[in-house]
Every structure is written in C-alpha cells, then in structure tokens.
Amino acid sequence: MRREDDFQERRKHIANLTDEELYNRFWELTAQVVDPLLELGRKNTTPSVERAVLLRMGISSLDTQKIVEGCMDRGLMAHGTGHVVYKLSKEKSISIREAGEMLAQGKCWDEAAALFK
C-alpha cells in the first residue's frame, strides 16, 4: 500500500514561520500535551508512587519512606518527591543520592521547601 504524499499540504500553516517561530511553536504544542499530564500527576500521586520514583532515582528503599513523609509533612507532595530531591541536589551541587540521604536524615528540609516558594 502506497501512502499519498501530502507533506506540502499539511505544512502550509507553518511554511512561512522562521526557525525561531517554529522553535517557539514546538514548545507551545509540547506544553499543551505535557501540562495536563503534570496536573494529573499533581492531583493523583500517592506515597507509593512517590517511593517508586525515588527508588528509580537510586535512593535507598530505607530512605524513600522518610523522604515521602517529609514531603507530606511540608506540603511538597504536589511537586513530586523526586523533584524535591532533584532541585535540592542542583541547588547544593551534590548528587541526587546525597541529597536524598540528607533529606532522609532530616537535614536541609527548610532549604528544599524554600525552592518551591
């Protein structure tokens, strides 16, 4: 079966855009796809899901529960526990594992929470 080539017809609405306009259009469309997924995740996450995310980030299973509880206590669950650990690691220029260990030990929670204000 041969597909009819309709590329020129389908691209008419973007044919006159500059590279910068195409770039911006790409990210606008990407946001339209991703934003509802992020919102769904914010509204429907669970401690179990958040622990699974942390495990996949290389955080020890013993530390995941402490981090999830810390996020719940501070109202950070909507941001995602993995995001909290990631942002703290970037802020302090340390590894994700080190950031997770610090949070599990009860350290840097105020600093982590401030990253989401």
Score class of each variant (00 low, 15 high):
M1E: 13
R3N: 06
R3D: 07
E4C: 15
E4F: 10
D5T: 05
F7N: 08
F7D: 11
F7E: 09
E9K: 09
R10Q: 10
R10C: 11
K12Y: 11
I14C: 12
N16C: 07
T18K: 03
D19N: 12
E20P: 12
E21H: 11
E21Q: 09
F26I: 05
W27S: 14
L29D: 05
T30I: 14
T30Y: 15
T30C: 15
T30H: 14
A31G: 14
Q32G: 12
Q32I: 10
V33Q: 05
V34M: 00
D35E: 08
D35T: 12
P36S: 09
L38W: 08
E39W: 13
E39H: 15
E39N: 11
G41P: 09
G41T: 07
R42K: 03
R42V: 07
R42M: 06
K43C: 15
K43V: 15
T45W: 05
T45D: 06
T45R: 05
S48W: 05
S48Y: 08
E50H: 00
A52L: 09
A52P: 13
L54H: 02
L54R: 03
R56T: 07
M57Y: 05
M57P: 06
G58H: 07
I59F: 12
I59K: 02
I59D: 04
S60K: 09
L62S: 11
D63K: 07
D63M: 08
T64I: 03
T64S: 08
I67F: 08
V68D: 06
V68Y: 03
E69K: 11
E69R: 09
C71H: 00
C71V: 06
M72P: 11
M72G: 07
M72Y: 10
D73R: 14
G75F: 05
L76W: 00
L76Q: 04
L76G: 06
L76R: 06
L76V: 03
G80P: 02
G80I: 05
G82K: 06
G82C: 08
H83F: 05
V84W: 05
K87H: 14
L88F: 00
L88V: 03
K92P: 15
S93F: 15
I94C: 11
I94E: 08
I94W: 01
E98G: 13
A99N: 01
A99E: 01
G100V: 01
G100M: 04
G100S: 06
L103Y: 02
L103P: 00
A104R: 00
A104E: 07
Q105A: 15
Q105R: 12
G106Q: 01
G106F: 01
G106D: 04
K107N: 14
K107Q: 15
W109I: 00
W109D: 02
E111H: 12
E111D: 13
E111V: 15
A113Q: 03
L115E: 05
L115S: 05
F116K: 00
K117R: 11
